[in-house]
Design a protein around this nucleic acid. Structure first.
Lengths: 165, 165
DNA sequence: GAGAATAAGTCAGGCTTGTTGACATTCCAA
DNA sequence: TTGGAATGTCAACAAGCCTGACTTATTCTC
């Protein structure tokens, strides 16, 4: 497996190296989604549901609009997903106290259980990769990923880190 | 690999670190597809077409079956994409000389032009990220991506590297 | 040479995820 | 208080992928 030669500061920017990086990203992302997809298979849910559960778990009480921005989809698309999750009792939607237009989202016990299961599987995958690659590689990995996010997306990401209720 | 302090070597495997890695991967992949998607907008083509063009450009003369394995989709799905690309004159399908059952795929000039345009945009994106992160980070990035690919996917990836016509 | 296996293409039907458009409710500021 | 903005919902439709069943042409095997 052709690794980028650290010593050579030019080689890592050749078109060929870039192309390999692009392809690696494509394949890795595919591998990345295998485990959760398998768990969801047959449940009637898909990746969209997984993503919603993930971010609601990450920031409970988040309103729909914020989740919308993070996920980068239209509200109609998200709404369909939320509707089924709410109907199935995985997510609870509470009317905002300060602003009654807002709906704040929480996982129910059942929702939290599924999210945990999905999260565990994906983390295991990630952990194995991190173990193989080692701490220094992981640091580099994170650096490049951060750089790969464009301004808007980075904002979503940053917004998530702040623990705003 | 290299010696890092014990404290750090554990920290990079915490659930929180893993979760951040997972989210970074999600956001980065989204940023990653923005540029090509914008180019394709309004052309009637989508990511599926982009992927097909990419890999045909990468390994001209590839037959349908191999492309199928690389992309990891069903032949019906790929066929719809190829049909339009061929009908529009972006891809050429030639009957195999050794085995006449096979169809070998090539980009036409027009197809190569579009692929180049898409590829340039995506490479630019990648190059900027690589520049920001630096060669060592890129090396780590690649190592983790390799580890993230599961067996099957890595095979697709490896098969692609061999320049088998 | 006959029959099984392989490569590719097709048709039908379904699912998930995304989109646009229209609409109800709530808040806020002029 | 009224009009505009924000928040969320519902309906209809498209893209893209999937499975299953089938056809055609060619190659391999006995």
């Amino acid at each position: 497996m052709s690794e980028v030669q650290v010593g050579d500061s030019l080689l890592f920017l050749t078109d060929e190296q870039l192309r390999q990086g692009i392809e690696a990203m494509f394949f890795a992302y595919r591998g990345f989604t295998v485990a959760p997809d398998q768990i969801l298979e047959g449940t009637g849910y898909g990746r969209a549901h997984h993503r919603a559960l993930h971010f609601i778990a990450r920031a409970p009480g988040m309103n729909v609009n914020r989740l919308l921005m993070i996920l980068g989809v239209t509200k109609q698309s998200l709404n369909r997903v939320l509707r089924t999750l709410i109907a199935d009792g995985l997510v609870e939607s509470r009317v905002g106290r300060a602003d009654k237009r807002e709906r704040h989202l929480y996982l129910t016990e059942e929702g939290a259980a599924l999210e945990q299961k999905l999260s565990d599987a994906q983390r295991k995958w990630m952990r194995d990769a991190y173990r193989k690659a080692g701490p220094e590689a992981v640091a580099g990995f994170r650096q490049v990923l951060e750089a790969l996010m464009d301004g808007e997306i980075r904002q979503s990401h940053a917004a998530l880190r702040e623990n705003t209720p």
